[in-house]
Nucleic acid binder design. Structure first.
Lengths: 104, 104
DNA sequence: TCATTATATAAGAAAATACTTATATATACA
DNA sequence: TGTATATATAAGTATTTTCTTATATAATGA
């Protein structure tokens, strides 16, 4: 059982196209900021700020490796979220477009 | 399968404490505007505007009966929403507080 | 028809949100 | 140590959102 306020916070995070797409991407595999920037075609600070919100909301976790910061999905404790994401189109094609040559 | 944009719209609707609580209430039974106003302790125009958003988003349906407008949940086509609501505390106690003497 | 009640709509204020540009921090490597 | 790259943070702006107050619409019943 989740408290309403907590759920509202989570749903606010999901109710943004950029962040929802990021979560879909992370479903496939962990990604670094620069990869997400390239896939979503937006600015680096924009993604960085979205990632901080997702991290603060407990939906992703980060691991620093070298100069890169990799983010991965962290919703094991929120099965309804996995169910929700499963109702959305996969983003594998988006991932194929980005190669490590581009950034990391 | 649902399009991302459509899902974002739905999640924006849910990412508000007032609207999310309304959906939880409607899970129990259909309610008229004045009942929701009393339970949520807010203004009538506020609820009326929230109901219009929920209606426009296809999450509730209305039936006019006399001077009253009753709203009911309309998420049969969105099973992930029912699943999500099931993870939240029920609102039956809130409903008990309101009697038909108060308004309708 | 007039007054009352329920609901909707309109307009405006205040707050929250998303994005931009500029800058700071941190790591890698020559 | 100095430069380049990746990421984060700060500050400002523009947009969106929520709520309020005032008013309109619609149904009821005397």
């Amino acid at each position: 059982m989740i408290e309403i306020d907590k759920m509202v916070d989570i749903l606010k995070l999901l109710g943004d196209k950029c962040r929802l797409t990021i979560l879909l991407l992370l479903q496939e595999k962990e990604l670094c900021v620069c990869e997400i920037v390239e896939i979503l075609q937006t600015s680096q600070p924009n993604i960085s700020q979205h990632m901080r919100k997702l991290k603060d909301g407990g939906l992703v976790k980060e691991s620093k490796r070298g100069q890169w910061v990799y983010y991965r999905l962290a919703i094991e404790d929120k099965p309804f979220l996995a169910d929700l994401l499963a109702h959305l189109p996969g983003q594998k094609e988006q991932l194929d477009k980005v190669t490590c040559e581009d950034c990391c």
